[in-house]
Structures are given as C-alpha cells and as structure tokens.
C-alpha cells in the first residue's frame, strides 16, 4: 500500500493540541502569542510553558509539533522573529514553518539541525521557487498555496525533492495567498505584516432586529438577513455594491473539502494534508481531526467512498455552509 500523507492539524491552545493528538493527528501546528505567526488573535496561541507541555504531550505519543513563524519580519523589529525561532529550537519543535527568506537564512545558519518548512505565506507555487529554497536553506517541506489544480500539484511534486504539503479542509480565502493585503486596505494590518487578517479590534457586528451588519473599521462589508449563514468579516468575503448590484464581488464564504479527491492526493505523492483553523476551538479540532483521520485511513483502499457521516460532520463546522474543491478541480487554465 502507498504511504499515507501525514495529517497536519491546527491548535490555538493546549486543549486544542491535545484534542488533535487524541483524535489522530500525526502532526500539530501551533504559534506563539505574538505577531510572528499568521493567527495573531487576542488570547490565542501558546505561552512557552504551554508549548513545552504540548510538545511533551505530542512527542510522548510519537506525534510531531510544528511551530509557525510565518509572518514577515518588520523593519526595526527583526529581533522578535529571531527570538521566536530560537525559542522554537530550544523547545524542541519538530520543525518551524517560515515564509520570510531572511528568517529562513537565519534559521538555517543558526540552528542547522532545526527542520524548516516553507509556509503557504511564502507563496511558492512552482518547483523552481521551492527548489531554490531547498538549495539555499535546506527546506524539507513546502506548503502549497490553495491556487493550484491537481495536475499542477502533481507537476510540482514530480520536479522537487522537497516534501509537498497541501490543504485538505478549512475556510478558504481569496486566491492570492501570501500576497494578500486586502485587510490592510481597511485596517492597515494584514497577515504578512501583523499576523492577522481583519483584526478583531476593527470588527463590529451590529444587530438591527434580526439583521446583522458586519463592519471593518467602520466600513460596511456585509449584511446578513435573519437565518442567513454568517462568515468571517474579511473583505474578500464581503458583499459590495458594484454598478447598482450588491453581491459577493470577490468570493463567497466557502470551505475547502478534499475528501472526494483523497485517493488522488495520495496517488500523486502528497506528503502531508493540512487542516486550516488555528483560530477555532478544541471542539472543531476534535471533530475535523477525527473525520479526516477516518477518511485518510480508508482512502488507501481501492473501494474508497466518502461516507455521508464524514460530510455531515464537516458540513456542520464549515464557514458559509458550502464546500468546494477550490482550485484542485478547475477545468480552465
């Protein structure tokens, strides 16, 4: 039987990390409580003590912990990013997930034994970029942005010695990963610079009767009628008036779900499948990890079929109540 991809699950807290491990994650990815990672939300993420306990917990069960330090070091504050890499190395992380070339160089030089993964925020979508990072910094794995079709992913895999990780489930964002500064347009802060898209301090939900308005820094970006499913307050998922018509001008809130193409992802040699959602709660992590674990274990079999209960479980926790194969399945080029 072909080797199954690792299941890589998110954790924004110690209970979420334990939920991921207990429900079958091979690997858990986490971040520090600062702007060095792309989920820098109020109250989220790990103190050093919590992370030390989490790493102990996971490694005692032969699972891995990856630390995401995947924002771009800001001018005059590079030391914060270097310090985070040093902390990750001394805590015994199995790898760090980096995007910034300067940080990759620092980590490679300062901690030659620390495994390096190229983050989705690095926005490397072709094998030349990935191979360059491999030659220059010895990266072991690259996380592909959610912009490539299945044949394109296969083409990358066939032309690089670097392990390829792809997204398998979670909220989808506009297809410009690692290069998106839409959030900055309204708030002055975006993932690459501040580790956060639509920072909570700029978000207001105001309810008028049963109608809920979403405002980002005062700008009305969406309005949900009674009973209409809501989504995250990001500009890419807002509804805007364009030439007299109000609609999702960029994209609808949807979740990526690759259950249907798991056998294909295994066949083309994807090394790891990632679940989005470090901002979500332990209940989400447990549910999604359990479901993906069951599906992955079954996906190696010739008679694989997506079980209705898996779809139901993932439907329930999805943003926007719609699921898509995203860019993986795209008839046009």
């Amino acid at each position: 039987m072909t080797r199954l991809p690792q299941l890589v699950c998110p954790a924004g807290s110690l209970p979420a990390l334990k939920a991921a491990v207990d429900n079958g994650a091979d690997t858990v990815y986490v971040g520090f409580k600062n702007a060095t990672n792309a989920r820098n939300f109020a109250g989220l993420n790990f103190t050093d003590a919590q992370l030390a306990e989490g790493i102990r917990y996971a490694q005692s069960k032969k699972r891995e912990v990856l630390i995401a330090i995947n924002t771009y070091a800001q001018a005059g504050r590079v030391q914060e990013w270097h310090a985070s890499i040093d902390r990750a190395a001394s805590l015994g992380a199995d790898a760090v997930i980096l995007a910034d070339l300067g940080l990759l160089a620092y980590a490679h030089k300062t901690h030659p034994d620390l495994k390096l993964h190229l983050s989705v925020q690095g926005s490397a979508t072709n094998f030349e970029a990935i191979n360059l990072a491999h030659e220059a910094f010895g990266i072991r794995r690259a996380v592909l942005p959610r912009v490539l079709t299945l044949p394109q992913v296969e083409y990358v895999i066939n032309n690089t010695p670097v392990e390829i990780e792809t997204f398998g489930f979670g909220s989808l964002c506009v297809m410009a990963e690692g290069r998106c500064i839409l959030s900055s347009y309204a708030t002055g802060q975006s993932p690459n610079t501040h580790g956060v898209c639509s920072p909570a301090a700029f978000v207001r939900w105001d309810n008028q009767g049963k109608t809920m308005n979403a405002r980002l820094n005062g700008i009305l970006i969406d309005r949900f009628e009674d009973g209409e499913p809501a989504g995250y307050p990001t500009l890419c998922k807002g509804r805007f008036a364009v030439l007299g018509e109000t609609y999702y001008a960029l994209e609808e809130p949807v979740s990526l779900n690759v259950l249907a193409i798991l056998p294909e992802l295994i066949r083309i040699g994807v090394a790891a499948i990632k679940v989005e959602g470090r901002q979500r709660s332990p209940a989400y992590v447990a549910e999604v990890t359990r479901t993906l674990r069951a599906a992955l274990d079954a996906a190696g079999n010739a008679d694989f079929q997506v079980k209705p209960q898996w779809s139901t479980a993932l439907d329930k926790v999805s943003e926007g109540h719609q699921q898509t194969l995203g860019a993986y399945s795209r008839p046009w080029k």
Binding site: S13, L14, P15, A42, G43, Q50, A200, A201, W205, S281
Partner: peptide, 13 residues
C-alpha cells in the same frame, strides 16, 4: 469584538 474574542480564546485554552 476584541475583548469578546480574547474571552472566547481564554475559555478555549
């Protein structure tokens, strides 16, 4: 929203 989110994340953790 920020205080609300911090509270939610505290309870999660």
């Amino acid at each position: 929203t920020e205080v609300g989110l911090a509270l939610k994340n505290l309870l999660d953790a």
